[in-house]
Computed example of a mutant assay.
Amino acid sequence: MEGKNDTILTQFLLLGLSEDPDLQPILFGLFLCMYLVTVLGNLLIILAVSSDPHLHTPMYFFLSNLSLADICFISTTVPKMLVNIHTQRKDISYIECLTQTYFFTTLVGVDNILLTIMAYDRFVAICHPLKYTVIMNPWFCVHLVLLSWLIMFLVSLVHILLVNRLTFSMGTEIQHFFCELAQVASSDTLINKVFLYMATALLGVFPVTGILFSYFRIISSLMKMSSSVGKYKAFSTCGSHLCVVTLFYGTALGVYLSSAGTHSSQRTMIASVMYSVVTPMLNPFIYSLRNKDMKGALRRLVEKAASCS
């Protein structure tokens, strides 16, 4: 990419995961299945939480918002990739690319902040159980979610405004299957590179620090409990969250901290698939299979749907 060029750019070229023609039908089928499973799984989580009064608690409120973010998250990238594979094209318009970058960056950040909020929720529930309903009141929970969206809308807007200042050569290739910010922003433009690293550091370091601090306090509180049954019951509510956090940060943080501002490699694209496609798909399974309340709510939802039909 070039930082200065008088030619007006109308489109980018997405190179995709592979240029092998024999792999295209396999990739199309695989990603279509993963997309449908992700949307259906997360939609079931949202419906179960909203329809079951037993799940009208802060923990499940945050979970339903995480599921909503995951549906939007995967919908910013996979449908366009499926269209390009089906039509055997690689182009994406300049406006469409910037829009995809904007919403993808926003939703990555929202997922990031929501996971931190969910860790704080578990910290309050385990370490301050008597004050839980007072601290995690509905007004506070709604404002936390709205604040996470607002922060990321503004941060992503700054990213896009900085990228929009750049000009690119005709036929600019993006070695990825979607318009990722690190691929679109010119690595030779200092202000873009500095803001990218600053935002990545702030939105990576602070949430991770918050999650680690929350679980440090949780473990400290559990160590003081005399009942082993109480310890297991308290920590079991954190198991699903820990699995999702490990999966998300193990791939997303590695990609952004080690590869931001550089051209994509095959390894980076595989890691991107993990956090942008696989993680949103696995989240409903992790939370439903490890949670008795969620399994009960999903069972009642299915029974209700069956009786109505």
Results as ranks from 00 to 15, higher is better:
residue 249 Y to P: 01
residue 296 G to Q: 13
residue 12 F to H: 06
residue 291 N to R: 07
residue 197 Y to S: 05
residue 125 A to R: 09
residue 295 K to I: 00
residue 230 G to Q: 02
residue 183 Q to R: 11
residue 30 L to N: 02
residue 47 L to P: 04
residue 165 R to L: 15
residue 105 T to V: 06
residue 38 T to Q: 00
residue 243 C to D: 05
residue 90 K to W: 08
residue 260 A to Y: 10
residue 85 I to R: 06
residue 202 L to Y: 12
residue 186 S to P: 02
residue 154 L to F: 08
residue 275 Y to E: 11
residue 117 I to F: 12
residue 122 R to T: 04
residue 112 N to K: 05
residue 202 L to P: 05
residue 300 R to V: 00
residue 244 V to Q: 10
residue 56 H to K: 06
residue 221 S to E: 11
residue 151 I to Q: 08
residue 304 K to N: 00
residue 103 F to I: 09
residue 61 F to K: 01
residue 259 S to C: 09
residue 137 N to H: 02
residue 204 G to D: 12
residue 1 M to R: 07
residue 139 W to H: 06
residue 103 F to N: 05
residue 212 L to A: 10
residue 217 R to G: 00
residue 5 N to T: 12
residue 243 C to I: 09
residue 40 L to A: 11
residue 151 I to S: 07
residue 240 S to Y: 01
residue 113 I to E: 13
residue 36 L to M: 12
residue 157 L to Y: 03
residue 9 L to N: 12
residue 135 I to S: 01
residue 290 R to C: 02
residue 182 A to R: 15
residue 208 V to K: 04
residue 138 P to Q: 10
residue 309 S to E: 01
residue 297 A to T: 00
residue 292 K to C: 02
residue 198 M to G: 04
residue 270 I to T: 11
residue 143 H to G: 01
residue 282 L to K: 03
residue 237 T to Q: 15
residue 250 G to M: 08
residue 230 G to S: 03
residue 224 K to D: 15
residue 276 S to Y: 01
residue 150 L to A: 11
residue 189 T to M: 13
residue 168 F to R: 04
residue 35 Y to K: 01
residue 192 N to E: 12
residue 131 K to Q: 11
residue 240 S to C: 04
residue 212 L to G: 05
residue 194 V to P: 06
residue 16 G to D: 05
residue 203 L to G: 05
residue 153 F to K: 15
residue 33 C to P: 01
residue 64 S to G: 05
residue 237 T to I: 04
residue 3 G to A: 14
residue 266 Q to W: 08
residue 70 D to R: 14
residue 115 L to G: 07
residue 226 S to C: 07
residue 289 L to W: 07
residue 119 A to W: 01
residue 206 F to K: 06
residue 53 P to G: 10
residue 106 T to H: 12
residue 15 L to T: 10
residue 293 D to F: 03
residue 308 C to T: 14
residue 122 R to Q: 10
residue 72 C to G: 15
residue 132 Y to H: 15
residue 133 T to L: 09
residue 217 R to W: 02
residue 213 F to D: 03
residue 276 S to W: 01
residue 279 T to R: 00
residue 116 T to M: 14
